[in-house]
């Protein structure tokens, strides 16, 4: 058991090097996509936390929007400095989710899916309808960027996508570690229990409703944080950024990637984004992009119902067997 550990360490090191070097090999627009991708990984990973309890929401992207609008308004209207406003924005998303949990958790399964869509869409339409303070259909413009950091000898300008990518990457990795710790804790185990054995969990004294609410609030808070990362990078938010089409993308990342592992949705997000934004653009299929994307979506649920994570699991299994066999030969 102690033998493969250097291997894991090595692969983590390799991953770190790839993540650091990656933006330098890309064009400017690809660097921007990389920033969005990093933020989206947080969105889909936080979404997964909710799916652990067995509920699929269509309002998650609006929670991201609540964070973005919240942080933007706190800086613009109240003059809160940017890093603090981001935390406040994320907390706002958590609080709104807590409020929504009261009506929404009267529903389950398909009804929850539709109910969360309705709740999210109502919030989005409120942004669209009320020019003051949400800016109406055009949204909020000229949001304060993340402030430059001046060390004296070196100045980090967050307008540069590479710098913002590093910043977002650090935040996202921190959040992923927190999400992972939550899942491995008693709370996370209870989420699983709530999903697979809710009656049994309830009979052993677990407050199922409270745990569902907790999952919703945590996932919304992290989605809100992702929203603030987006808002202070692009500098403008409007209702269309958080519409059902974007939600569909999050849903498909999670389903194509698979949600039983923490890396499943991340792989789904990376592969589908790379495919949609880079591969299909490169081969010049601008208008045909949704066509190919849609076909891949259908094919992946038909032929890969357990998601990409299942493929990864099998590859790891094969590699393990290979290593194992090699060692026996050595002996």
């Amino acid at each position: 058991m102690s033998k493969p550990q250097p291997l894991i360490l090595l692969s983590f090191l390799l991953l770190a090097v790839v993540l650091i070097v990656l933006p330098h090999g890309l064009s400017y627009s690809q660097r921007e996509i990389l920033v969005f991708l990093t933020i989206n990984i947080l969105v889909v990973s936080s979404y997964r936390l909710l799916t652990l309890t067995g509920e699929w929401s269509l309002g998650h992207i609006v929670m991201m929007g609540v964070g973005a609008y919240g942080s933007a308004l706190y800086t613009k209207e109240l003059g809160v400095p940017v890093p603090i406003s981001m935390i406040l924005g994320a907390l706002t998303a958590g609080i709104i989710a807590w409020g929504l949990s009261f009506p929404l958790f009267r529903m389950k399964g398909f009804y929850f899916l539709i109910g969360s869509f309705a709740a999210g869409e109502i919030i989005r339409l409120l942004w669209k309808r009320f020019r003051d303070p949400f800016g109406g259909p055009k949204g909020i413009k000229r949001i304060d960027p993340f402030p430059d950091i001046d060390f004296g000898f070196v100045r980090i300008d967050f307008f540069d996508p590479v710098n913002y990518y590093y910043f977002a990457l650090i935040i996202v990795i921190l959040c992923l570690v927190i999400l992972w710790r939550i899942e491995k804790s008693m709370i996370g185990l209870t989420f699983h229990a709530v999903h697979w054995q809710d009656k049994l969990a309830e009979s052993t004294g677990v407050n199922v409703r409270a745990y569902r609410t907790l999952a919703l609030v945590i996932s919304a808070t992290f989605a809100g944080l992702a929203g603030t990362l987006l808002a202070h990078y692009i500098g403008t938010v409007n209702p269309n950024v958080f519409d059902i089409e974007q939600m569909v993308f999050v849903l498909t990342w999670a389903i194509v990637g698979g949600t039983t592992t923490i890396y499943g949705p991340i792989i789904g997000c990376i592969i589908l984004t790379a495919l949609n934004e880079i591969v299909l653009r490169e081969i010049g299929l601008e208008q045909g992009r949704p066509l190919v994307y849609g076909l891949i979506l259908i094919a992946s649920v038909l032929f890969m119902p357990k998601g990409l994570e299942d493929v990864v699991k099998k590859v790891i299994e094969l590699m393990k067997q290979h290593v194992f066999r090699g060692r026996i030969k050595d002996v």
Partner: peptide
């Protein structure tokens, strides 16, 4: 093509129909 093969997987059917939606829209746009 979709709903019969995915009859035991309602979430899969939903996602497949989203894929189908994108295909039809793209074909009409083309």
């Amino acid at each position: 093509t979709m709903f019969h093969p995915l009859r035991d997987n309602p979430l899969g059917g939903l996602v497949a129909s989203i894929g189908f939606l994108m295909v039809i829209q793209a074909l009409i746009i083309l």
